[in-house]
């Protein structure tokens, strides 16, 4: 474990050295993200101008949900957007060797070797929105709730990583072209709505099969002092199960890789 922390520090150091490269990227991301927030807020404000709530969520609670979805999105983009989309290409072109020959866990190295620090630009408005909405709600929040929120955030992070990783390993066999990645990006906008709007088939698909909705909703419950034990349990259990599946899938992919003559 210590070795990995050290390794990650080294990766971070290399990436920070390149921070000047990211400077323009950082500001472009910031502008893009600000525009996105303004549009999303106009969208929800337009609805709230006419209606008082969306399934018992008031406008500031929705803001918190939006903020959290963007926060999680930015976090996983920082770590994985430069890595995970390239997995099928690496495997299918046989250029994986230089990762496999390193004396560390290949899944770890494959997943987080190139950071995209430009995405930090997206985090700033997310946190600002969450704090702003919280002040508007005016509810006191305990240190325990905040701690609880961060723990859930870690599980959400783990779950989104695992889903993304599983999709990428699956696409090694299915299409042999890296567009499972598009599927993951396609479902991300679903995170910004309350889980309760999804009914019927979409509820089953996006909570139980492809649990993308809980990723944003469950941490939001912690900040809003809502205790939804069932969804929280699903998030925790799914995060662990999906992570284990991702490890198995990767092992299987490696077998496929070596038998393909890599």
């Amino acid at each position: 474990m210590k070795r990995y922390i050290k390794l990650f520090k080294a990766i971070l150091k290399i990436n920070l050295k390149n921070i000047m490269v990211y400077r323009a990227n950082f500001f472009l991301n910031l502008v893009d993200s600000l525009v996105w927030f303004v549009i999303t807020i106009i969208f929800f404000n337009s609805i709230f101008n006419i209606l008082n709530n969306i399934n018992d969520w008031n406008i500031y609670e929705i803001y918190i949900l939006i903020g959290i979805s963007e926060l999680i999105k930015s976090l996983i983009f920082i770590f994985f957007i430069n890595n995970l989309p390239y997995i099928p290409t690496l495997v299918n072109r046989g250029t994986l060797d230089y990762i496999l020959t390193k004396p560390v866990n290949s899944q770890f190295l494959l997943s987080a070797r190139k950071l995209d620090l430009g995405n930090i630009g997206n985090i700033v408005p997310s946190i600002f929105l969450i704090i702003f909405a919280h002040l508007q709600i005016g509810q006191n929040i305990s240190v325990i709730s905040i701690l609880y929120f961060f723990i859930l955030l870690i599980f959400s992070f783990l779950l989104s990583y695992s889903i993304w990783f599983i999709l990428m390993t699956l696409s090694i066999w299915f299409t042999k072209v890296d567009n499972a990645h598009e599927l993951f990006l396609g479902v991300m906008p679903l995170m910004r709505y309350p889980a309760s709007i999804y009914q019927g088939v979409s509820r089953i698909v996006f909570i139980f099969v492809f649990p993308i909705i809980l990723i944003s909703n469950v941490p939001a419950y912690a900040l809003l002092n809502r205790f939804e034990i069932f969804s929280t349990l699903i998030l925790l259990v799914y995060a662990i199960i999906f992570f284990i599946i991702s490890i198995f899938f990767w092992k299987f992919a490696l077998k496929y890789y070596s038998s393909a003559g890599g």
Binding site: N55, P189, L190, Y193, S196, I197, Y198, Q199, S202
Partner: peptide, 12 residues
């Protein structure tokens, strides 16, 4: 996919 979310939102 985002359309499914939007339609669900309006249904609710």
């Amino acid at each position: 996919l985002p359309l499914i979310a939007l339609i669900s939102l309006w249904h609710s």
